[in-house]
Amino acid sequence: MEEDLILIVEDEREIAELVQDYLEAEGYKCVLAFNGVEGLELFFQLRPTVAVLDVMLPKMDGIELCRRIRGESNIPIIIMSAKKSETDKIIGLGIGADDYVTKPFSPGELVARIKAQLRRFKHLSLQKEQEQTIRYPGLEIHLKEYMVVAGGKQVELSAKEFQLLAFLAGNKGQVFSKEQLLENVWGYQHVGDANTITVYVRKLREKIEPNPSEPIYIRTVWGIGYKFEGGSL
C-alpha cells in the first residue's frame, strides 16, 4: 500500500514539528511548510494524502490555501486555528475543509481526526472505484477506462463491443431482445439490423468466454434474445 503523505502548513515551527513527531510515530510520512505559498507549491509537487493547514499564515492565509487545494483535489483538509468562533468554523468548513481544530489542541486528538478523515476518504474512494468497475468471476469491466480483463488478461474491444458488454453486464439476469439491444446500445431500431447483434455477440464471446461454444457470460435465450450471467459454470 502506498504510504500516506501529510502536508502540514504551520508558521509556528514548534507546533509543526510537534504534529510531525506524533504523526510519524503513527507511521505517516510528513512534509512541512511555513507559509501559504510554500504550502501550495508542495501540494502541487508532492500531491499529499491529507493537508493540515493553519489559518494565520504569512504570504497566503490558510483559508485561501484551503480554497486553492480544494479546487484541485478532494483530499481531506483539516484546519487548525486559534480562532474559536462559530463564524470562523463555518467559513473554514464552507470553503472546503473537512474538519476544524481550535488551538491549543491535543496532538493525539489531531492524529485521531486525521485517521478518521483518511478512513472516510479511502472508503469513499473505494466505493467510487467499485461503481466504475463491473466485476464477475474471471471478468472485469472498467467503465471509465473502456478496458476489459478476461481470465486475467486485458482484451481489446471495439467501442460498440465494449458498450454492448457493459450494458448486458450492468443488467445481469435481464433478458433483452435484439431490437432492445439495438435501441439501448446503438440508439435506434431498424428492421433487418437485428443480425448486427448476432455478429457482435459472437465477437464478444470469442474474446471474453473461456469456451465460446459454451458461453458462461452471455447466454442465448432461444426465441427471445440474450442475457448476462455471472460466469458460474
Rank of each mutant, 00 (worst) to 15 (best):
G71M: 13
I90S: 12
I78D: 08
D98V: 08
R70H: 01
I75K: 04
G92F: 02
I75S: 04
I75W: 08
K83L: 14
A97D: 12
K84W: 12
K89W: 00
I95S: 11
R68C: 14
S73V: 01
R70G: 02
I90T: 13
S85T: 15
I78Y: 02
S73I: 00
R68A: 15
I75E: 02
N74L: 12
A82Y: 00
T87M: 14
I91V: 15
I79G: 07
I79E: 00
A82V: 06
K84G: 05
I78R: 01
D88K: 03
I75H: 05
L93E: 06
K83P: 02
M80I: 13
E86D: 15
A97F: 08
R68V: 11
E72L: 13
A82H: 01
I75M: 09
S73C: 06
L93K: 03
K89E: 14
E72N: 12
I77D: 01
I91H: 09
I79R: 02
I78M: 10
L93A: 10
G96P: 06
L93T: 07
D98N: 14
G94E: 10
M80R: 12
N74I: 13
G96I: 06
K83N: 05
E72D: 07
A82I: 03
S73A: 04
G96D: 12
K89T: 08
K89Q: 09
I69V: 06
S81Y: 02
S85R: 10
S85H: 10
I75A: 04
G96F: 06
S73K: 06
R68G: 15
S81T: 06
M80H: 08
M80D: 00
D88S: 12
D99N: 12
I79M: 07
A97N: 08
D88W: 12
A97I: 07
P76I: 11
K84H: 14
A97G: 10
D99S: 14
E86T: 03
S73F: 02
E86I: 09
D88G: 11
I77V: 11
I95L: 07
K84A: 14
D99L: 07
G96N: 11
G92D: 03
I79F: 04
G92V: 03
S85W: 03
A82F: 00
D88F: 11
P76H: 10
G94P: 02
R68N: 15
A97H: 07
K83W: 12
I77M: 02
I69T: 00
D99A: 14
K83F: 14
I77H: 03
N74K: 08
S73D: 03
K84V: 08
T87P: 07
E72C: 12
I69R: 00
S81R: 02
K83E: 07
S81K: 01
T87R: 13
D88Q: 10
R68I: 12
G94N: 07
K84M: 13
G94M: 07
A97Q: 06
I90H: 10
T87K: 14
A82T: 03
